[in-house]
Amino acid sequence: MAQLFPENLDDPYLYLAGDESHKCELIEEMNQVWRRPDSLIDTPMHYCPGCGHSVAHRLLMEVVEELDIVERTVGIAPVGCAVFAYNYLNVDMQEAAHGRAPAVATGIKRVLPDRILFTYQGDGDLAAIGTAETIHAVNRGEKMVIIFINNGIYGMTGGQMAPTTLEGAKTSTTIFGRDTSVHGHPLRIAEMIAPLPGAYYVTRQAVNTAKHVRKTKKALLNAFQYQIDGANGTCFVEIVSNCPSGWKMTPLESNELLEDEIFQFYKLGDLKLPGKE
């Protein structure tokens, strides 16, 4: 078998950064079945090993390219782990204040209605500090795609409890486990916004298995296509993801926890489909 990684790899960082000298000779155009979307910038990501963000980023850029909307799309990065999303996504991007991404996207969409807008937000951003902006953007039916990465924790700041943290979960601010009588209850934002008339398409997906990745891609394709078609409302794609660093476990354990416990509470599937209540 041909080697997939070069021997004597002095600088793996350089290799990941796309240094051609280490290029694997196995891949030629005729047998290439996988490639990086051009709009996904070829650079090492800062995400922790095993984190779902990188998969979600890739799917997002695949969808934007497949729908041929690279030059019409403007994205909003949040405060949180995805704060540097604009370092990876080669579409026009604005970095928003914590929680304000839906308001920022609203501002752009209202003055440039023919552009395709998305926000990319974590659960601290969207479900805590930005709850008002989220609910009101959806309630106005802002024509945008909200991508909600829900990993049940504040990753960037070091693993504090989020509104989405499950009952009993240990975090750096709930060291004995989340006690709902003190810390409140885990919040299911998708269930909250699905009944709003402004919500056009609400779905909850995951990226922890190949099957889930394919379903998430389909969901993102749908959401962006609806916006392109002028759908009268907001498309909301929640991706329940893992946070091995914040959860203090290996990537494998974190994926098992998703299947064993987290999907029991955050059930995957469509919450609202166009034309159906």
Binding site: I76, Q94, A97, V104, G107, R110, V111, L112, E133, H136
Partner: peptide, 23 residues
């Protein structure tokens, strides 16, 4: 475009977005 925002916090961030779009 006129929009009554849900708060001054949202309003100024809408301005941020729209100003960033060069309008």
């Amino acid at each position: 475009a006129f929009l009554q925002a849900e708060s001054e916090v949202a309003a100024i961030n809408m301005v941020y977005g729209a100003a960033g779009a060069g309008e």
